[in-house]
């Protein structure tokens, strides 16, 4: 199974970015092979509107079945839900930290959007 983490860096030690729609990159981690790939989200970082929806599309295309991020707005929440992607929110400082918490089953599933949408 693959998990998408929002980040501004290039590896597991990089910080977990608190934004979903406007996250600079997604780190897609494969739990089975322990390998990861990076997907640039610069285009959405620059998208003024609908960034959450487009980021959700990007994550869905990557094949990830879960997202770990800081906060999730209403449009992204709806879009990820429709794609059958589970959303976890975390304030872990790094991707590795969030991954550990996930493995320990300590991340909480987001039941609703926890921030108001940006336009």
């Amino acid at each position: 199974m693959k998990i998408a983490f929002t980040t501004s860096g290039n590896d597991l030690q990089a910080p977990l970015d608190s934004r979903f729609g406007r996250a600079p990159k997604f780190l897609i981690y494969d739990l089975d092979s322990s390998a990861f790939e990076l997907i640039d989200n610069q285009q959405n970082l620059n998208a003024a509107q609908g960034a959450g929806i487009q980021s959700a599309e990007t994550v869905a295309k990557s094949g990830a079945q879960a997202v770990v991020t800081g906060h999730c707005g209403p449009k992204a929440f709806r879009a990820l839900n429709a794609a059958g992607i589970t959303i976890y929110t975390s304030d872990a400082p790094s991707v590795a930290g969030a991954l550990d918490l996930y493995r320990q089953g300590q991340l909480k599933k987001a039941e609703t959007a926890d921030v108001e949408g940006h336009w």
Partner: peptide, 12 residues
């Protein structure tokens, strides 16, 4: 205007 997204089996 990105008002429709194709995710899962039905456009949103």
């Amino acid at each position: 205007f990105h008002a429709i997204a194709m995710l899962g089996t039905v456009p949103l």
